[in-house]
Design a protein around this nucleic acid. Structure first.
Lengths: 129, 129
DNA sequence: TCTTGACCTTCCCCTAACTGGAGCCCTCAT
DNA sequence: ATGAGGGCTCCAGTTAGGGGAAGGTCAAGA
């Protein structure tokens, strides 16, 4: 398979696939003409990476997950721990965003949003509380 | 004031303050020795920027917000619109993160997390559903 | 056979919002 | 005079790729 085929079958842009090769996540063979030559296992790995990235895992997490996936003697506890740590980061981000959301929506609610200059949002940002 | 004073009074790292000058958000004067020389208004602007950034506004949003703040004839509607657009982006991010969270926590729940290799998280990532 | 268009290659720069560090200068106290 | 603790500029790196240039390859049609 050429990169275009793998791209459409995995849903990942060709750029991303080349990047993943660059950083050593996959190692496709090369044809005589220099084109990358992907096997089914490469496609499978790329799909794995795509799903892990969609769950928000970092590239380094993906590297670890792939290694665990390929290690037949892994302990599921290791996978679970990685997932739990990631989950904690997600929860932290949600909490941060939620706090911003709450503050900002409160300010927005207090802003008339008309043609007059008086604005509680700017007032808050400027420190006049 | 030197940059260290402004840094401790605004809570922003000196590096960040230099960066904000670089991109034109503030324009402190210079002393004869080449040191940045901050006025109270600069400090006030930096505090404004710090609060806006803490609410998740991008630097470009901050630039616009500062311009609105300094424009005595602004319409509060313009501020409110910017805030509402930002709020929408925040909500989108929260929804994305929440979806990741739900999927991942479901997988985690199904994973024994022991010394055996069998792992529903890896199984899901590998596409065996 | 030639050409055209689609595909592939590498290479380099760009993103946001800083952070870290090197190498150097300035000032003040000892 | 010297050492500590500022300050200065400039360069590189961070995440996870995206955009685009310059050029090689391949298959189909005229």
């Amino acid at each position: 398979m050429n990169i275009g085929d793998v791209s459409s079958r995995s849903g990942l842009p060709a750029k991303t696939i080349r990047y993943y090769e660059d950083i050593g996540l996959i190692k496709p063979h090369r044809s005589a003409n220099g084109y990358r030559c992907f096997a089914e296992t490469d496609l499978h790995k790329l799909a794995f990476l795509g799903r892990a990235r969609a769950l928000g895992f970092t590239i380094e997490d993906c590297r670890t997950l792939m290694a665990l996936y390929e290690d037949e003697s892994r302990a599921s506890a290791d996978v679970k721990q990685l997932a739990l740590e990631h989950l904690a980061k997600i929860e932290e981000k949600i909490a941060d965003l939620q706090a911003m959301h709450d503050t900002l929506s409160e300010l927005v609610k207090c802003c008339a949003g008309d043609s007059r200059p008086d604005c509680p949002i700017l007032k808050d940002l400027s420190g006049e509380s």
